[in-house]
Every structure is written in C-alpha cells, then in structure tokens.
C-alpha cells in the first residue's frame, strides 16, 4: 500500500491500464500538452505520446462521438470531460448513441468507453460549474455510473471501468482530488463495478452517502457516537447498477435510513433509494426514510448562499436524530 492523493490514484490507474492494453487511449480537452486541466493526466503525454494522449479542440459532442466510433471498432477510449458540466454538450452522444448501440444492434456492437472527469458541487463555481451531473445519467439503461469516494476506490473502480465492455460514466470531484489515502500497488487491483461498501459499521441507523457527502456523514457519525447513536455508513460507489442488496442488508439490521445527496432532491438518488427500500424492506422500517439533499435551487455563487444550498454535517445530524426519535425510542 502506498499513500497518495485521489488525483494520483486516478493517474496511476490510467497509466497502468495504458501500459497493459495498447487499445486504451485518453482523449479530451487539455489532456496532453497542458497535462490535464486538473492534472489527472499529468505525464501521460510524455510516457505514451500524442497518438494515445489526444488533445482535442472544444467540441464535447464531436470528441465523445469519436470515442464511441473508436470503441465500436474495439479500441478502449477514455474520454475526459474537463468538468462533467460540459458533458451536457455531448449528452445526445452519451444517451442516444453510446448507451443504446448494443441494444439497438441486437448485441452486434458494443461501446467499451469510459467518460470521466470531475463533477458535483465545488467551491464557489456557481450554477453552471457546480452541480451533481450523475442524476442525468443514472436514469439511462445501457450506462454504468460510478462515483468513487476514496483514492483506493478511484483507482480500483477506474481500472474496472476501463476493462468493462460498456459505456461507463465516471464522475470524480474537484473537492476530492487533493485527498490522501492508502492505495494498493498491485497493477491488477480492481474494485468490481456494482459493489457497495460499508464504510463504518453501526446498529441504530443506516446512512447512505457518497463522495463529499460521505465525509460529512462520517463527521456526523463521530458526533452521534458521542450521543450513543451507532451509525452504519454505506457508500454505493456505483450508482448504476446499484448494489441494492448491501443497502437492504443494512436496513434490515438498523431499521432506520437517512440518504444524503448533494444534488437537488426532486427525483434524485435519494428518491430512488427510498423507493426500493420501501418496496423491498417496508416491514423492516421503524421510521420513514429521510433524505438530506441539496436545496431545490441552482447553485448560487455567494458563499453564504452556497452553504445554504448544500447538505451540511448539521443537516445530517438533525435528520439522523429525527429518524432515531421517530418511534419514540
């Protein structure tokens, strides 16, 4: 195990997979000469050359389509979105072409493609650069959607995504790139897509969260432990396909659930998780599922308003306390 940043873990994953498989190449804006807008692709141009680290002009739809076409012929492109907000320019390519080619062709063609880059709320980047983009993609059959919370997950999940034969939406976070953690050196270290992880065991309440929200939930769990509330933290890691089994398993143990998500709540991840818990484990619930979500507003720029928009540790604490008192226990 080495200790490295989330950014370095992603870089290592790309490097290892490019060394392992000559069909893997990286394509996007500023990925080469500039070394990556967020330095995730740092040094790749030097090691692999311009053939495999392809700088593009600003045309998200164009270069995403290039990735899809190359994938149809068996290459394994990793398309970088400088930020995932820009992927909306390529949404038709992703939703209508990448996700559906395998199905529409009756299995004749596949699209082994990774589209990766940072997304989610960041620091004072305002409405167009600070939003939870996964919500637009996890609705789509044919896509897989990954949100890695730790450096270890970033590496293991990105490597699995690159080896997967389907289009994978892989959304990182500007706010986590500097985060340090232990990461296995083994070049064959993989974390399978579609596997949740229990980050902290507990008995009184299940909190489901990922990315930055997981760290806030961890803070809340420490605080709640002092009050005698034992929190179990589940990180889905892959949002589609979702490991419902692990989440349901935790619910059957704790009987109470709080889902935390950074995005606006309406028709969000929390709604879906609450729905399948209700469908599959209603009798196990001692309280309604609570959601702590971003406010139903675009992301404002001003620091105070941004804080109001975003789920905070305090809001998580309040929700857990509500859930735990719901039946008077």
């Amino acid at each position: 195990m080495a200790v490295m940043t989330y950014r370095e873990a992603l870089n290592q994953a790309l490097r290892e997979e490019m060394r392992r498989d000559p069909r893997v190449f990286v394509i996007g804006e500023e990925v080469g000469l500039y070394d990556g807008a967020y330095k995730v692709t740092q040094g790749l141009l030097k090691e692999f050359g311009a053939k495999r680290v392809v700088d593009t002009p600003i045309c998200e739809s164009g270069f995403t389509g290039v990735g899809i076409g190359a994938a149809m012929l068996g290459l394994r492109p990793v398309v970088e979105m400088m930020t995932f907000n820009f992927s909306l320019m390529a949404m038709d390519q992703i939703v209508n072409t990448a996700a559906k080619l395998h199905y529409m062709s009756g299995g004749q063609f596949s699209v082994p493609l990774v589209i990766r880059g940072p997304g989610g709320p960041a620091a004072q980047l305002a409405a167009q650069h600070s939003q939870s983009m996964e919500t637009y993609y996890y609705h789509v059959p044919g896509l897989k959607v990954v949100r890695p919370t730790t450096p270890m997950d970033a590496k293991g999940l990105l490597k699995s995504a690159i080896r997967d034969d389907n289009p994978v939406i892989f959304i990182e976070s500007e706010t986590l790139y500097h985060l340090k953690g232990e990461v296995p050196d083994d070049p064959d270290f993989l974390i399978p897509l579609g596997q949740a992880i229990v980050r902290r065991e507990g008995t009184d309440v299940t909190v489901v969260a990922y990315m930055g929200m997981m760290y806030r939930a961890l803070e809340a769990a420490e605080e709640l432990a002092k009050e005698g509330i034992s929190v179990e933290l589940v990180d889905p890691r892959t949002l589609r396909p979702m490991d419902t089994e692990t989440i349901i398993g935790s619910v059957r143990k704790t009987h109470r659930v709080v889902v935390v998500e950074a995005g606006a709540g309406f028709a969000g991840m929390g709604s879906e998780i609450a729905a399948f818990i209700t469908e599959q484990a209603f009798d196990d619930l001692d309280a309604p599922v609570e959601r702590v979500t971003g406010a139903n507003a675009p992301m404002p720029y001003a620091r105070n308003l941004e804080k109001l928009k975003t789920p905070t540790t305090e809001k998580i604490l309040a929700a857990v306390r509500r859930v735990c008192n719901a039946n008077g226990s």
């Binding site: 270069f63 076409g69 149809m72 390519q93």
Partner: peptide, 20 residues
C-alpha cells in the same frame, strides 16, 4: 455500422471509426 436517427449524431462517430 447503423442506422442512426438523431440528425447529425453519427458524423462524429464516423470520425471515430476513421480514428480507430
């Protein structure tokens, strides 16, 4: 290689095939 029904969308895909 298809049969693509969103007008203009298969043109970048063709470039990708040529890229490959």
């Amino acid at each position: 290689l298809g049969g693509h029904a969103i007008v203009g969308a298969h043109l970048p895909v063709a470039a990708g095939v040529a890229f490959a």
